[in-house]
Structure formats: C-alpha cells, structure tokens
Amino acid sequence: MLELVNLHKTFMPGTANEVRALQGVSLTIQPGTFAVLIGSNGSGKSTLLNAVAGSFAPDAGTIRLNGCDLTRLPEHRRAARIGRVFQNPFAGTAAEMSIAENLALAMHRGKHRSLRPALTRNARTQMADRIRELKMDLENRLDNPIGTLSGGQRQALTLLMATWTRPDLLLLDEHTAALDPKSAAKVTALTQSIVQREKLTTLMVTHSMQQAVDMSDRIIMMHRGAIVQDYRDEHKQRIRIPDLMAAFDRLARRELFDESVADLLKSQYA
C-alpha cells in the first residue's frame, strides 16, 4: 500500500521562476491497485512520481510504502522496492551494455552492488525464458548491446527489468508516449499482462485517455499541483472518455471563473 500524506514541493522557491509543483497531495493506493494519473502538462504528475521514487526529498509531507516511511530514504535505497519506467526509452537501460548484462543488474537490484555480476548459465536460461514472453525475437540476442534495439524493444526490456523481482510499487511515467503507435500498443499490452499477473500496485502517468479508461482501477486527475478528481470503485467503472473530457473542460472553465464572474453571479444568480 502506498500512502502519501500532504506532499509539498516547490522548485526554485523565492525566485521569479518559483513553481509550486506539489501543493499538498494526499493519496492512498491499496495493494494491487492499478492507478492512472492524468492531468495537463505541468500539473505535477512527474514531480509526484519523482517524489515517490526519491529523486528529491519533498519540502513537507510523508511517503509510506507498505507501512515503511520512505520520506527521507535516498533514491538508491528505494530502488529495491520500487520499479520505474520513464518516457524516454534511453533512460532506463545502459546502452553500451548487453541485454544480458542489463538484465543481470535488474536481477540483483537491491541485493548487492557489484556492477557486473557474474552471468551463470542458469541465469541466462532464465533470462531467455522471460524475454521469449515479450515475443520480440530478442531471446537469441542476449549479448547484443541494448543500444542496437528499437525504442519499443528497449521499453519492453526496461519494463521487464523494473518488475524482474516483484516490486512493492511500479511507477510508469508516460512510458509509451515516445513510441510509434504499434510499439506503444505492444508495450501497453505487456504492461497490462505483467501488472495483472503479478498483481502489482501501480501508478502510471499517461496522456492517453483511452489507456486511462481501459487499463486502470482508478483514475486520478491532477491540476496545478493538486488532485482535483479521483474516480475509483464503481465510479471508475462508469467513466468513459467523454466523462474525462468533460472533467478537463470543467477545469478549463474554472480557470475562467474570476472575480468578475463572482460579481456577475451576485446580480444574475438568485
């Protein structure tokens, strides 16, 4: 279970460029829930994921994972329990290392910190078996450098690595957004099957309302560093794309609601 309590984060405080990226975000995600985070650009979605992953410490608030307080824990010490996939296919893997070497890192994630762990025959068989499930014809290319793979193949591998040892939490930040539509569909399907099989607690950022509706148990909408909608349980079940569009619409309208509108309503609403 992921518990976020009243998280705050301001970038460049006190400067002209000050951004209040998280303004008191509280959120509890039950074990095994697939939660999707949507919201306009700059609403704080990535900042929220980064805070959970430990890229920085929040200015205020608490982050707990399965009851354990992570708030002050450095990023590398969370890595054993949190799997991550970013938008950029080049971010999650080491390009000059082979598929097998990258996977070996993932297998040993959080166990001990030797950079190039020995690759036993057993380990290679295990790798080939799981890569075969990707159906990307990579199982015979274990020794090829990752840099030779397509974006879609790299994202699929990154996903496999992020979930190799079952993480307590999986964070996905628009991990299909940079891919061509065909690869994106493939990685999306892979995501769904891994999350379902492992019953992973997942927090995924997406721009695709279709993904949000189809994949999730829960849809959380952010705006200006705050959660403004939270569709869950039976309310989530009835949400369709037009409902999400309408919610975005209402946010846009709310932005147009200034003091002059308040004055107008005083004389025109009775």
């Binding site: 209402r250 309208r253 147009l256 609601f257 003091e259 509108v261 308040a262 309503l265």
Partner: peptide
C-alpha cells in the same frame, strides 16, 4: 461561498 470558494459551489459556462 465568497470568491474563490464560490468556484466550488457553482459552475459558470465561461464561453
């Protein structure tokens, strides 16, 4: 229910 709290109570079309 004064502004800005009023925005939580009533929806104005805006266009």
């Amino acid at each position: 229910t004064d502004f800005p709290a009023m925005r939580d109570w009533i929806n104005f079309c805006g266009e």
